[in-house]
């Protein structure tokens, strides 16, 4: 049986103050799949994403990305494979210029300069911002920042793209172009945590419902979204 892109087994995590955030999470995502993580606030969606690249470490459970187990030693390797885009792009754009922010990942990996330039160019083109390389990240609009934030992660050529609330705060036009962008990423394994059910319907054939730190449903979006009782029970709307 070939390894899945993401394998999470029995993951449990509590915050230092004792609050339980994740209970016995098990999830398997195949290469190229597009999965939505939905659930009410506080369900543990962001927490789960932060485990995927080892920013949070669980006491119980195992995580494997493309067959590589997540351990202290493989952190660097895993982070090259899992591209995590945070909810607030201001937290992700910390270089003065767009170019530098997008180049950070490849530079940290020690890639040669011309490779770095090529990757930055490709990443910016992929998000439709190839003319923005010399702009100041700080001055961009929210929609532009979100795309740049995505580019900062794409430049690392990740096997998995994990996005935390990608459409939050975006006006309808920016939202539209973001959805188009994500749709255009052929073959990319996607894990999207979102409240935006319409985005979920458009982008993700599979939906995982998280509530109170546990997975309460995992199945085809088309089916689950028709179950209004289920949705309501877990603080969701059909959208």
């Amino acid at each position: 049986m070939c390894p899945a892109m993401i394998e999470i087994e029995g993951l449990s995590f509590s915050y230092p103050d004792g609050q339980r955030a994740l209970s016995d999470i098990s999830l398997r995502v195949e290469a190229g799949e597009r999965v939505a993580l939905v659930g009410p606030n506080g369900a543990g969606k962001s927490t789960l994403l932060l485990h995927l690249n080892g920013i949070l470490r669980a006491a119980d459970g195992a995580i494997r990305v493309a067959g590589v187990a997540l351990t202290d030693r493989t952190l660097g390797q895993i982070r090259a494979m899992v591209g995590l885009v945070f909810q607030n792009p201001d937290d992700q754009l910390f270089s003065p210029r767009v170019f530098e922010d997008v180049a950070f990942g490849p530079l940290h990996m020690g890639l040669p300069e011309d490779e770095v330039r090529a990757r930055v160019e490709r990443a910016l083109t992929a998000v439709g911002m190839s003319t923005y390389a010399d702009r100041m990240s700080y001055h961009l609009s929210l929609g532009e920042k979100k795309r740049i934030a995505l580019a900062t992660v794409l430049s690392m050529n990740p096997r998995v793209l994990a996005l935390d609330e990608p459409s939050s705060g975006l006006d309808p036009r920016a939202r539209r172009s973001l959805i188009r962008l994500l749709q255009g990423l052929d073959g990319q394994t996607l894990l999207i945590a979102s409240h935006d059910m319409r985005l979920v319907r458009e982008l993700c054939p599979r939906m995982v419902i998280l509530d109170g730190g546990a997975i309460v449903a995992d199945g085809p979006t088309e089916t689950l979204i028709e179950d209004s009782a289920l949705l309501e029970q877990h603080g969701l709307e059909r959208g």
Partner: peptide, 28 residues
């Protein structure tokens, strides 16, 4: 969150020293 965002992009590639130069890290 800034620190986490940096950690998330602090990856290692096969067979290459990672981390960039001290000056670069300080500048970041």
């Amino acid at each position: 969150r800034l620190l986490r965002a940096r950690a998330a992009r602090s990856a290692h590639a096969e067979g290459r020293p990672a981390g960039g130069t001290l000056f670069w890290r300080a500048r970041v």
